[in-house]
C-alpha cells in the first residue's frame, strides 16, 4: 500500500496577501519533498495546509485518492508533524512527554501489564536513538534547546507514521545530529514512507529528493 497526498489548484491568501496560487502537488511514497523559498513565501503555511491544520485555502486536497474532508481521521493517524516549536512540556520528563504522544496515537502507555512495559521500552529505545540515554527522567525544562528538539525527534521512531511533515527540523541540532537525522529521512523514504520538509540546511543530493520552489 503506498500513500499519496495530492493538492489541486491550491491557493492560499492570508489577509489579502496571496502566498501561492494554483499549486498542484503530488507527494508519493518513497519521496523526500523539500519545499523551498525565501522567508515569507508561505512554506510554513503550505505545510500547515498539507497537514490539515490551516483550513482557509482554496483548492482540493486528496489523501490516497479520497477528498481530505472524508478521510481526515485516517490521514491524521498516519501523519507526524513537527512544527517550529518542539511541543515538549518543560515540566515533564522526556519519557512522560513521549508517553502522551504514544497515547495520542492510540497506544496504551499508562497502567500496568505487558503492554505498558512494552510501551516504556519503546520510549527508552527511541530516546536512546536520538542520543538522550541518561536523560530520560530529567525535566525537559532543564534540557538544552537542541536536546528538547531531539526529544521531539524521538517521536519519529516511537510512533510509526507514514507521512512526516517537518518544519525546519534541523534547528538547534548539532552537526552529528543533523547527519543522523538526514540518514533517518532517507531510510524512511526508502522504506516506503514519505517526508515533506522545509529547511535552510542543504540536504545531500539523493535520487529520492525532490524540490518544490515557492515564491
Amino acid at each position: 500500500m503506498s500513500l499519496c497526498l495530492q493538492a489541486r489548484q491550491l491557493s492560499c491568501e492570508r489577509d489579502d496577501r496571496s502566498l501561492f496560487k494554483g499549486l498542484d502537488l503530488d507527494i508519493r511514497s518513497g519521496e523526500i519533498v523539500r519545499i523551498e523559498g525565501p522567508n515569507g513565501s508561505g512554506k510554513t503555511s503550505l505545510l500547515k495546509i498539507l497537514s490539515g491544520q490551516l483550513r482557509d485555502y482554496e483548492g482540493e486536497l486528496f489523501w490516497n485518492g479520497a477528498a481530505m474532508q472524508s478521510v481526515r481521521e485516517h490521514f491524521l493517524a498516519n501523519l507526524l508533524y513537527l512544527g517550529h516549536a518542539p511541543g515538549i512540556k518543560s515540566g515533564l520528563s522526556p519519557l512522560e512527554n513521549l508517553a502522551w504522544y504514544q497515547a495520542l496515537s492510540g497506544e496504551s502507555s499508562g497502567g500496568q501489564g505487558s503492554g505498558a512495559q512494552e510501551g516504556e521500552q519503546q520510549r527508552l529505545d527511541a530516546l536512546e536513538q536520538v542520543g538522550l540515554a541518561g536523560f530520560e527522567d530529567v525535566p525537559a525544562g532543564q534540557l538544552s534547546a537542541g536536546q528538547q528538539r531531539r526529544v521531539a525527534l524521538a517521536r519519529l521512531t516511537l510512533t510509526p507514521r507514514a507521512l512526516w511533515v517537518l518544519d525546519e527540523p534541523f534547528t538547534a541540532i548539532d552537526r552529528h545530529g543533523v547527519a543522523a537525522l538526514e540518514r533517518q529521512l532517507i531510510r524512511h523514504a526508502q522504506a516506503g514512507g514519505c517526508v515533506l520538509v522545509t529547511t535552510h540546511h542543504e540536504l545531500a543530493a539523493s535520487s529520492l529528493l525532490r524540490r518544490i520552489a515557492l515564491g
Binding site: 500500500m1 503506498s2 481521521e73 493517524a77 510509526p160 507514521r161 507514514a162
Partner: peptide, 14 residues
C-alpha cells in the same frame, strides 16, 4: 516498488 515497511495505519480510535 518493494512492499513498504512503513504501513499505513487504520485509525484505531483510542
Amino acid at each position: 516498488m518493494d512492499a513498504p515497511s512503513v504501513p499505513l495505519l487504520e485509525h484505531q480510535g483510542g
